[in-house]
Amino acid sequence: MSEMTRPISPEDTFNQGDRLVVSLQEGDERAFAEAFHLYKDMVYSLAYKVLTNKAEALDVTQEVFLTVFRKIGSFRAECSLKTWIYRVTISHAASRNRWWKRRFWSRTTSLDLGLQSGNGTRPLDLPGRNRSAARECYSKELRDVLSESLRQLSFEQRVAVVLCDLEGRTYDEIAEVTGVSIGTVKSRIARGREKLRDLLKDFRGGESL
């Protein structure tokens, strides 16, 4: 097989990432733009799911890229660029989360409130589920309910579940990004998902829409 026609191997992607790091460290403007477009959705969706708030996610996305571009000089290739960006995102999200919790935790509402007041199976006054509603309505609603449910998880559980389900990271990678053991990662994912399962159980019927 000639050099030109060889299919792209994981090694190439690695080298590509490597080259991107070198260009970034040299201060290449195009490399900045490339890195931004390569990772913007990843950073945003991770921040969005972990913080469950759009404005916060936008702020974190901006902070993450500022940090990445400022600190790229001190980046040593001990992990991949992507793993490093995950780490930066999570640390920014964690500091946001701490602030958010301190300021607003008393204003959040528990999903169990409705249950305690004994008015049936729908916990919160979430938008009513209408089987005849359009599919997009359902997925919008699902996103709202999911955000509400994710908020009931601890920050660590949310990070583990989101990295696993949204980003498709392996347990090893999540352990590396979050700096805990694989056992802890597994139990966070299991507990997080079980809790989400309980919270979303009511909603699952609409899946067939």
Binding site: K40, L66, V162, L166, E207
Partner: peptide, 28 residues
């Protein structure tokens, strides 16, 4: 199936709104 549903719901991708791309790039 319940857990699979949860996984599917969490795995839904979200994209950075185009309106924010320019402002973030500018600020960065």
């Amino acid at each position: 199936q319940d857990l699979h549903f949860v996984r599917q719901a969490v795995s839904e991708k979200i994209f950075l709104p185009e309106s924010s791309v320019r402002s973030i790039l500018a600020r960065v």
